[in-house]
Each structure stands twice: as structure tokens, then as C-alpha cells.
């Protein structure tokens, strides 16, 4: 084969390069189109599937979760819009709307007691109590609760999920109008599985100044979030919602 030398050869090489890249993008375009078509087909099938299994999705906890996961993979959110195909034709959304209302009811009913801070486990326990005894009513998971709360957040700042930063401890639901500051969330996170803290512990764990600690505690006392225990060796501050959460975990009455 003759090697391309000189001006002619260089031009030849450039030409080939251009042709290659053209072919390349053509292939990519093809690929993309095919993929898009595949997704389209998949979505169609998913919709057909959902329609066919509507009852299972509403009633069966495991089925529902897998369906949600499958939807998430292809970027479909069955709860995205109340007017969308999903909720209108399938009524999948109804399940979560109903659940959301029950969550609000439980949070309002218990907020006098816990200052608006409740653990996910206790919330689930109380929602189940409110839903009645039938198998399908009881088939609610923490995953469902979190999804319903995500829906509720569309209504404003009323609801927030506080997740433990290091993956240890429990997930908390905060249903207080207005936000907790970073400091308050940091205190909650530092507790892990405990339900109380002392000033000394905060000083050690968070390395905050006394003023900062005082300010955070004052706020939480004023908002009714913490109760004070003066009868121990040190003054301790308790979150009633976390205390009852522990009892729920231990299977004790709340």
C-alpha cells in the first residue's frame, strides 16, 4: 500500500478522519434513536403492566416498592402529577394522597406530646393503627411513608425528613412550621440512638462555645421540643418524640 506522503497524503488523511467522525456521529445518532425507541416501548409496556396490576400495586407492599423502583430506573414518576396518566387512569396516586392525609393527622395529634418531632418507626406504627385492621390497610412500609411525605413537601416547609448523617441512628420526621437551624439538626444527629443530651456532651462532641449551646437549647425549650430533667447528676435535655421512639423499638407502650 502506498503511504500518503506530502501535501496530497496529508489531505487524504484529513479527509479520512472527517469521514470517520461523520460515520461515528451517525452511529451514535442511530444508537440514541434506538435507545429512545426502546425506552418508549418500555414505557408503553410499563403503563400496560401498571394498568393490569393496578390492584396489586395498591394493595401489595413489596409489589408496590418494586414497581416504584422500576419506574425510577426509566425516569417515570407515577406520582409526578395529579392530572397525569398515572394517577388518573391507575389511581396509584390515591394511595399516597390517602397516606399523606393520615400522616398529617398523626403528626398533628402527637405534636402536643412530642413538639412535632417523631421517628419514622413510631409514625409508621401510628399510621397503621389509624388505617384499620385489614391486611391491605396494614401493608404500608416506611418507604411508602417517605414517598408520601415527599408529596407533602410540595405544600410548603411544614414537613422535613431528618436523616442521620453517618447512616447510624434513626430517621426523624419533623412537622413543625418553620425550619430547624443547622445547629438544631446537628444536635439531633449527634444523639444517634439516645433521646437526651447534656451541655457537656455537646461541648465534647460538637466543640461549640457555651453561648452557641445555650442559644440552641433556649430555642428548643421555647419551642417545646425538649423537656428538662433537673433531678439527675447533670441537667439533661430530652426529646419526648425520641423517647417514645425508643419505647416503640423496645415494644413498650406509648
Amino acid at each position: 500500500m502506498r503511504r500518503g506522503v506530502g501535501i496530497g497524503g496529508i489531505n487524504q488523511q484529513l479527509l479520512e478522519k472527517a469521514k470517520f467522525s461523520e460515520k461515528g456521529s451517525e452511529l451514535a445518532r442511530d444508537h440514541l434513536e434506538k435507545l429512545a425507541k426502546q425506552f418508549e416501548t418500555f414505557r408503553d409496556n410499563l403503563e400496560k403492566f401498571a394498568e393490569k396490576h393496578r390492584n396489586e400495586i395498591k394493595k401489595d407492599l413489596k409489589f408496590r416498592q418494586q414497581f416504584q423502583d422500576m419506574c425510577a430506573t426509566v425516569g417515570v414518576d407515577p406520582l409526578a402529577s395529579s392530572k397525569g396518566f398515572w394517577s388518573q387512569v391507575l389511581g396509584v396516586g390515591d394511595f399516597y394522597y390517602e397516606l399523606a392525609v393520615q400522616i398529617v393527622e398523626v403528626c398533628v395529634a402527637t405534636s402536643a406530646q412530642n413538639g412535632g418531632l417523631i421517628s419514622l418507626d413510631e409514625l409508621l406504627l401510628r399510621v397503621r393503627k389509624a388505617r384499620g385492621k385489614s391486611k391491605s390497610a396494614q401493608d404500608v412500609s416506611t418507604d411508602d411513608i417517605l414517598r408520601a411525605i415527599k408529596k407533602l413537601r410540595a405544600l410548603g416547609d411544614g414537613f422535613a425528613v431528618i436523616e442521620p448523617t453517618n447512616g447510624q441512628g434513626r430517621i426523624l420526621i419533623q412537622c413543625i412550621p418553620g425550619e430547624l437551624s443547622m445547629d438544631h439538626t446537628a444536635i439531633l444527629n449527634s444523639l444517634q440512638t439516645r433521646s437526651s443530651f447534656t451541655k457537656e456532651q455537646l461541648r465534647d462532641q460538637l466543640k461549640w462555645s457555651d453561648e452557641r449551646i445555650e442559644a440552641a437549647i433556649d430555642f428548643m425549650v421555647k419551642e417545646g421540643l425538649v423537656w428538662i430533667d433537673n433531678n439527675g447528676r447533670y441537667t439533661e435535655y430530652y426529646f419526648p418524640g425520641l423517647f417514645t421512639a425508643q419505647r416503640v423499638t423496645n415494644g413498650e407502650s406509648v
Binding site: S196, V221, W227, I228, D229, N230, N231, G232, E236, Y238, P240, F243
Partner: peptide, 9 residues
Amino acid sequence: FPPFFTLQP
């Protein structure tokens, strides 16, 4: 609940 025995401020 320990703080139950402390009169709350």
C-alpha cells in the same frame, strides 16, 4: 420519662 419529674419552665 425522667423530665416528667421536673417542673417544666
